[in-house]
Every structure is written in C-alpha cells, then in structure tokens.
Design a protein around this nucleic acid. Structure first.
Length: 482
RNA sequence: CGGGGCGUGGCGCAGUCGGCUAGCGCGCUGCGUUUGGGACGCAGAGGCCGUCGGUUCAAGUCCGACCGCCCCGACCA
C-alpha cells in the first residue's frame, strides 16, 4: 500500500481492492483469520443497503423477526442435502458453562432449520399462510479462503423465510424477491445484474431451485450478489411444516428463502471503483456531499465559514447527507484527493471568490476529467442543483457499469469461441445441458470458469450443449467468479 | 490443505561477510509559516527486530521448529 492513495486498479485489481477497503476505512482485519472489523464508513454503507432492502421487504408484506444463533446439530441433519452441503463449513460449539454439551450446537450458517422448526409450530391451517418473515442476522461459514466483505467466516446478511400453501405461490414469492434484489441492485447500488437460475451444482443445498442476481465487477469477474430459493417441500417435510387445506386435508407447505449479505458492499466497491478509489452511488453513499471550505487568511476564513455553514444547513434540510471537512491541518488539495478515494459522489467548495460572487463550486466524482467534473453554480437554489447532480451521478454510474458490462458479455455458439471469450476474461453465454460433467469440464478447460446462471430473460429455443452436444433448452452464462 | 511470498516503531521498507548506540520515507505530537488539486521549517515521541529453541565471545543477521499474514489453486453468500 503506498503512502498516498491506493494501488491502481489497472495494475493489480486484488491489491487495489484490499487497499481500498482498508484505506477508505470500510473495514479492517480482525485478530481471527477470516474475520472482519466493519468500521463506521463501511457499516454506514451496509446500513444504506439494509434500509433500501428493508423498505422493499416491508412493501412486499414481510415482517422482521429474530431467530437464535445456536442450532441443535440434529436440526441440520434432518435435510440430507442441506447437511451435506454445509457440513464442511460449520462452526460447532461443544462446550458451554465449563461443561461438554449433550448435543453440539451449530453456529448458524443459515437458518432454514430453526425457522422450519418454528414454522411447524406456528402453522396449522391454510388461514395461517403465507408466513412472510425476514431476519437481519450474522451467520458463520468456515471458509477456506477469505476476502474482506466478499467472503468472511462471519458475515452480516438478511435471510427471508416464507411458507406457502402451493408450489405456485412459493415460486411467485421466490421470483418476487429476486426482483426486489434486482431492483435494489440497479436503482440503489447502480449495479446492473443478470437475473437467472442456478445450475443444480451451484444451487443452495436443500433447494429445489435457486435464483441469483449476478453482477460484473471491474475486473470482469462475476459476483453472485443475492440469491432466492424455492425450497419446494424439502424443509417442510424435514420439519413437518404442515397445514390443513380447505378440504380438511393435511398438506406440506412450500417454503422459500432468500438472502443478501455484506458481500454486496464488496460488490459496490468493485463494480464502481476506479484507480483513485471508491465511487459510491449517491443513494447508498454514507456522505453524498463533502464540503471543503477554502481560505488563506483568517479574514477569508471568517467570511467563508459562515457562508459554508449556511449552505450546508440548506442541503441538510433538503434531506442530503453532508459532511464538512473543516480540518485545519491538511490542505484543500489533500482533502480533494482524500474524499475522492473515499468515493463521495459530490464535492462542494466554497472560497473567497464564491463569497464575492454568491457562487459555489461542485465537483462530480463520476467524471474523470477535472474540468468537466467541476461546475460553478449560484448559491441561490444550491440544494436543487445538488439534488439534480446527485441524480445525474446515480444514473451515470449505472450507465457506466452497464456499458462496461455489456461490452464484456458475449453469446457464443462454438466451444472454441467460448474458451476464447473466457480466456480474455469476459462472460460467455452458451447452450448448456445443465450437467455436472459439462460444468466440471468447463472449469478444467478454462481455469475455473463456472456457470453463473440460466438467465431468465432468454427467448425460448433449443440448441445443442456447447460441450456435450446433447440437446439443451437453455443458454447459461459462464464466467470466472468470486 | 497444496504452491509461492512475507513477518524490523502506526504504515511502507533498508539493514552487505554475524560486530559497536537498529536506520530511512510516510504518518503521529508541539510551535510557526501555509491553504482553489496530495504545503514547508524547526523540535520531539514512538522498537522485546513474529514466537520458542539452538550455534557463537557476540544474533535483526546463521540453523531448526512453531505461529501469523498476503497472493495463486481445491470449497463458497
């Protein structure tokens, strides 16, 4: 890490990422391997993700609740595929209060099982359905290799868990929540995403179908940014989640679960960041505007500061998140670079000339060229100008990410083209029979590219699997992924 | 767990064939001058050289073990 700024993205993306996360004070390493200390700036970003999602969950009829951290080991074993999938990454508590426990407790890697237990008790009749609950929680998965935000042993997330009377309702819910994630990603995080269905290898352990939103990072690798699962009746059967239908017959429920984690913070970093550091979308940025006063002498300072204070108050009363950098010990130039690294979307400068002319300078973070990024506006109506620019920046970041992404996604028809596309680091869309052998073959041939999803928006058609030649009904996206 | 790299003030590093009081840049503290794109001067503070054990008159330096971190793979939100 250099003393000033971060390793340029173009030089070493992985290094750039770790530099950015630490130098912008999003997070720090913890004393335990693979764990992370989320610092205020990073936590505020997560809080913005949280509030954007929470609002949408409530608007679609969900309520928040909280289920316990510890789960009896036996619960996980009730669903065969579930335990098989999670067993290698469980943290297990064997002792408590100085004594060995009769039954080990698992630190939740996800909560389908405890929640299934509760739902079995709560649900008797079709009148109790649907149950639409979400929880905000931490979970633990003992991963081999970790990276700040992208994969940590403990992470924060939300997990929605719903129970329904029919398959169709569960499927509808699964896709509704996938849409909620996509809406959040696009409109709040300014990240374009591909919605799709996971291959059977990539699906959640215990799910019938898993759906995902996949985003492209600036190094073109894919990031699974949120998942929504139709669990079928797998967990209902394992936990006896049953209801009496209208004709007084006992039926198993159909359940869903869906989650989005602090990984999204890493996604925001990697989808928008540039050589200078972060570029945060205004909707989720902890500070939307940073105000830097400019003065040389005490006399100038005494005229600049009151004007700045007045303007900042106006912006705040317009509902904007504004930070005033009134540090005396660093120069304005230093502050400009510092806040650009931290990704604040818009900078407000007020100096002696502005006081004279009743103007202010606004500088956009999303535009590289300094002259183009900077504009001078009248102090009158500043809040409107700022709001307008923030809207433009939000749109521009989405636009830039979309243009970048689309330039690196290719539909292919031959395996030669497929490998060439992956080789150059891009995403390839190809007919795929969905088999594990083909996926393994592709992984081996391409140095680790995996199927990301069968995109939902593809036209119905048929073709031959690009590897096996077997008939395939759908195309899938393949890419190297985080 | 396999391969590669690295552990020396907060951060980044130097420290030659073992030798004297362990150094440099950044940052930090104080004072003064500065301030519209990463200011400067002066004076300071800050180290069990990752841990343990060996070799030696003498170890940051040589040997061994261990621990930790980073990068690349197998596994994953």
């Amino acid at each position: 890490m250099s003393a000033q700024g971060v390793t340029p993205q173009s030089e070493d993306f992985a290094r750039w990422y770790t530099d950015v996360v630490q130098k912008t004070e999003l997070a720090d390493y913890a004393p335990v391997r693979g764990c992370m200390i989320i610092r205020p700036y990073g936590y505020e970003l997560w809080e913005a993700v949280r509030s954007g999602l929470d609002r949408r969950f409530k608007a679609t009829g969900h309520r928040n609740a909280y289920f316990p951290l510890f789960i009896p080991m036996s619960f996980l074993q009730k669903e065969a595929e579930h335990i098989e999938g999670f067993a290698p990454e469980l943290a297990i508590v064997t002792h408590g209060g100085g004594k060995e426990l009769d039954e080990p407790l698992v630190v939740r890697p996800t909560s389908e099982t405890v929640i299934g237990y509760a739902y079995a008790n709560w649900i008797q009749s079709y009148r109790d359905l649907p149950v639409l609950i979400n929880q905000w929680a931490n979970v633990v998965r003992w991963e081999m290799r970790t990276r700040l935000f992208l994969r940590t042993l403990e992470f924060l997330w939300q997990e929605g868990h719903t129970a329904h009377a029919t398959y169709d309702e569960a499927q509808e819910e699964t896709l509704r929540m996938l849409d909620v994630y996509a809406d959040f990603a696009v409109n709040d995080a300014a990240i374009p995403v591909v919605k799709g269905r996971k291959s059977s290898q990539e699906k959640f352990a215990g799910a019938m179908y898993s759906y995902t939103i996949e985003a492209m990072m600036r190094d073109r690798r894919a990031l699974q940014s949120g998942t929504s699962h139709n669990l079928g009746q797998n967990f209902a059967k394992a936990f006896e989640i049953k209801y009496l239908d209208r004709s007084n017959e006992l039926q198993y429920c159909w359940t869903t679960s869906w989650g989005l984690s602090t990984r999204m913070v890493g996604g925001i970093v990697m989808a928008h960041g540039d050589d200078k550091g972060l570029r945060l979308p205004p909707v989720v940025a902890p500070y939307q505007v940073v105000a830097v006063p400019i003065y040389k002498t005490d006399a100038e300072k005494s005229v600049v500061l009151p004007v700045m204070a007045r303007l900042v108050a106006e912006l705040r009363s317009a509902g904007l998140r504004v930070h005033v950098d009134d540090r005396e010990e660093v120069s304005p130039g230093f502050k400009f670079n510092d806040w650009e690294m931290r990704g604040v979307p818009l900078r407000l400068e007020v100096g002696p000339k502005d006081v004279e002319k009743a103007s202010a300078a606004l500088v956009r973070r999303d535009i590289d060229d300094r002259k183009q990024a900077k504009s001078f506006v009248s102090q009158a109506g500043l809040a409107n100008a700022v709001t307008g620019l923030l809207t433009a920046i939000q749109a521009s970041l989405l636009q830039q990410a979309t243009v970048f992404r689309d330039a690196h996604m290719h539909a292919v028809d031959t395996y030669g083209d497929f490998k060439a596309v992956i080789e150059q680091g891009d995403w390839a869309l190809a007919y795929y029979d969905g088999s594990a052998e083909v996926e393994d073959q592709i992984k081996a041939d391409t140095g680790g590219a995996s199927s990301r999803c069968f995109p939902l928006d593809q036209e119905a058609g048929a073709g031959k699997c690009i590897v096996s030649g077997r008939p395939a009904k759908e195309r899938a996206w393949f890419a190297k992924a985080y």
